[in-house]
Design a protein around this nucleic acid. Structure first.
Lengths: 224, 224
DNA sequence: TCAAAAGTGTGTGCTGGATCACAGTTTGCC
DNA sequence: GGCAAACTGTGATCCAGCACACACTTTTGA
């Protein structure tokens, strides 16, 4: 059993709860068990629902979508401090959506009812929640516009910037394969593009990691 | 000045308010002026904000996005009974987003503050609102997965089905050009694809209109 | 009423990326 | 330690869809 303190810390790391006091967090924490998961555990799948809101406290979680033909689309890679599963609260069944740990991870989980109760009773949280949704919607819209018209190199540049929070985080822990499933490319194409970026000193590459060297020039390239 | 009754009808047509009584609608209506607009009027642009929530009562409204390079992406074509502008309420500035009437149109408009007041006071509406957001998010996600991996003919089939509400509405009033900006194709490609669909008796074509003949086969084709 | 503009049909290159087919290198694991 | 699996690098081939070019038809609006 994990201490309440650590649970509170878990919740605190999530932006949605950021303006609650420690006491208030403690109340919520009681209803939010912490789970330690191995790498490659499936957290969420179309079959097993149940608990629905997850908060990543440590590790990486991949949200992906399997098309009927088996094609995989990575929707997002979540790092610690982020929340997911909101869709279920919105009453939407995400047919074909999965969440899976990419590394060993620590998560807080909450049930739909609890979340709904909290949302309905606390205005600050419901506002944060709406904000988070708005951000998500905005990000998706940008993603759509990139997918719609940009060429692959621009898409990759755009993805790298987005994942690095516009260059604020330097290191992106991701394989070429994973990046490929996010921009709708195949692995080889991504490899070639990243090598091109490297020869231009925009990035550095290591196995499973990309380090952004020059976000400014990368951004300039993105819009070209 | 338009009568209050007609305003109430306007609101009533919008799903978000569907479970309110006539009296309750009347209260909201007082704060929701109706506007009659000519075709091709810009309703919403990055420059002029102000009023933000719009409900389409009659006519068609195009929501689009202009990329920095001038490329236009049509996000949606709104018909009567739909609501848009939610993003502003979520505190997101939709940089580069526009809304424009495609036909003469009748709209109800509401200010951000009014909407926020209503949202915060009425649980039924705020739930509907969340629901609507969820649907939007879901639709965008589907759109992303289509853009990511499907070939053009499948994309077009998918778009036609989506716009026709899976075949329930038969007629889609849209030019090839507009359809093209929604799937990320160019106009000529869309023309060729639609002609192919016609020779297979999946659709009928007229100037500025596509009529769905066989939604079932179209759906089968979409996932292939 | 009669341009001009908007919408559609069709053909000919060209090219960005997919696909396939490898080889080399690093990591994890028994 | 050593094998298998995962990750990366790189070429050859092929084709979906873009860009451009132009003809034709319908609608719009001074």
């Amino acid at each position: 059993m994990i201490s309440l303190t650590s649970r509170v810390q878990c919740l605190n790391a999530v932006e949605i709860f950021c303006d609650l006091s420690v006491e208030e967090l403690a109340v919520i924490s009681k209803r939010a068990p912490v789970r330690h998961l191995d790498s490659k555990t499936i957290i969420y799948s179309p079959e097993q629902l149940g608990e629905v809101l997850f908060m990543v406290n440590e590790g990486q979680v991949q949200i992906y979508h399997l098309a009927p033909d088996g094609q995989m689309i990575t929707v997002a890679i979540l790092e610690s401090g982020t929340l997911f599963g909101e869709m279920a609260i919105l009453g939407q069944s995400l047919y074909g959506n999965y969440a899976q740990t990419m590394t060993p991870a620590i998560l807080c989980t909450m049930s739909v009812e609890d979340v709904k109760n909290i949302l309905l009773t606390d205005l600050r949280i419901s506002n944060r929640f709406l904000e988070a949704l708005g951000k998500r919607l905005l990000a998706m819209q940008q993603h759509v516009s990139i997918l719609t018209f940009k060429l692959m190199p621009q898409r990759v540049a755009s993805l790298l910037l987005q994942m690095s929070d516009s260059g604020r985080i330097r290191e992106i822990r991701c394989t070429h394969e994973t990046l490929a499933t996010m921009v709708g490319a195949n692995r080889e194409t991504v490899t070639k593009i990243l090598n091109e970026f490297r020869t231009q000193n925009l990035i550095e590459q290591y196995r499973g990691r990309v380090v952004i060297l020059d976000p400014t020039r990368l951004a300039a390239f993105e819009n070209s």
